[in-house]
């Protein structure tokens, strides 16, 4: 994940902004490889793994309706 992306990301639930916490970055490109994003309003934490944030809404319970 590129750091500038934070400007247009939003919490999938509140649509408010996210704070970025970096645990590991690519030393050359500065790409965030591991860390998390925390909603400034509801506090929900979203993980970043292998450079890809997982920004599904918590639970995503509605998916179970598909069964």
């Amino acid at each position: 994940m590129n750091r500038e992306l934070i400007a247009i990301l939003a919490c999938p639930v509140c649509k408010d902004g996210l704070d970025l916490d970096v645990e590991e970055e690519d030393p050359r490109s500065g790409e965030v490889l591991r860390g998390n994003l925390t909603c400034t309003t509801c506090g929900k934490v979203y993980d970043i793994l292998d450079g890809i944030p997982d920004l599904r809404p918590p639970g995503d319970d509605r998916d179970r309706d598909l069964v």
Binding site: I8, L9, A10, P12, G51, P53, L55
Partner: peptide, 25 residues
């Protein structure tokens, strides 16, 4: 990721609740 390179951001998200700011696209 292999196709678009690392400058293009990708994330796991749900079309019903997009994690993108209003008016940003």
């Amino acid at each position: 990721r292999q196709r678009v390179g690392r400058d293009t951001d990708l994330f796991i998200g749900d079309a019903r609740d997009l994690p993108i700011a209003t008016d940003a696209a």
